[in-house]
Simulated assay, not measured.
Amino acid sequence: MALMDTSFIFVALVFVLAGMVKGVTGMGLPTVAVALLTLKMPPLEAAALLIVPSSVTNVWQLAAGPALYPLWRRLRPMLLAVCAGTALAAVLAGAGNGARDDAAWSGAVLGLALLAYGVLGLAGWRWQVAPRAERWLGPLAGFATGALAGVTGVFVMPAAPYLQALALEKDDLVQAMGLAFTVSTLALAVMLAYQGAWHAAAAGASCLALLPAAGGMLLGQWLRGRMAPALFRRCFFASLLALGAHQCLRVFTG
């Protein structure tokens, strides 16, 4: 796979938009990028493009936070479970029925995940995890996130809602998401390399995609102080809902 297999302008604009969303909200780069790129390619091919932009922007995000080591200790069971879930997805994919079936299955799961994430975001549903429940709920959320990432290339569900339910301070939450998404991206990269989808051509295309993603993130950080975050989030989740519905219709009616 190479960046020029599809429209260069389309891919660049996707990563500018995805980076902008991440700059405003602290998340959303892989979600937006994969959701839009799958209009042109299978989900895991799209995931291979986002490895470098996602890794760099997530490290950028987690490095800017106030307390990395305490967050690492608190979230370590969840993060290890993310790796385990991604590994299981890789093993199951290796025993699949073929590339066409795998692509259809990935597209269906991605569409449903986007629908669920969009509905939750628009509903504004909030919950809180009791400290005693973190011991078992964190690994469960991490494993489910890794398994879904291994199928769809998107690693926000259910990790993002879980982290939002930990009652972290704003800066700690942004840093926790950066940490979780960094580990998820690296686990996904290992899985794609295992499957042969992460190679020199994919790595080169992913490095090129870093430029528009970084530009978009800088734009998003500039916009964050100049627009209503609530309005931006509603537009973000409504867009995910529409993309998820489109993905499901394409898979189930195609």
Rank of each mutant, 00 (worst) to 15 (best):
W127D: 02
A187Q: 06
T145N: 08
Y194V: 09
L208M: 15
F252P: 03
V91I: 11
D5N: 11
D172T: 03
L112K: 01
L163A: 00
F155G: 02
G254C: 07
T145F: 04
P53A: 11
G220F: 05
L115P: 04
C235S: 13
V11P: 00
M4D: 09
M27I: 12
Q61E: 03
L92E: 13
L168K: 10
A12H: 02
L163W: 01
P158D: 10
W222E: 10
V16I: 13
M191R: 15
M157L: 14
T57Y: 06
V52C: 04
V24F: 06
L79I: 00
L168P: 03
L231I: 09
G204P: 05
G94A: 12
L75P: 02
G196T: 06
Q61W: 10
M27F: 15
V190A: 14
S55K: 00
Y162A: 07
A176K: 07
V109Q: 03
G146R: 02
A116S: 10
A99E: 15
H199Q: 14
V32E: 01
A67L: 08
P158W: 03
A33K: 07
L168Y: 03
F155L: 06
L140Q: 09
M1C: 03
R126Q: 11
G196E: 09
G121C: 09
C207D: 00
R250G: 15
L186S: 05
L211H: 06
W105A: 15
G142Y: 08
A203G: 08
G138Q: 13
L110G: 03
F155Q: 03
A46G: 14
G215I: 12
R250Q: 14
M217R: 10
A48T: 06
P161H: 08
L79H: 00
V109N: 02
G138S: 06
M1S: 12
L37F: 13
C83N: 07
R76G: 12
A64K: 14
L249V: 14
A133Q: 12
V56E: 04
L218Y: 11
T185Q: 03
L163K: 02
A213R: 04
T253I: 07
V14W: 05
K170L: 00
L36Y: 01
G138W: 05
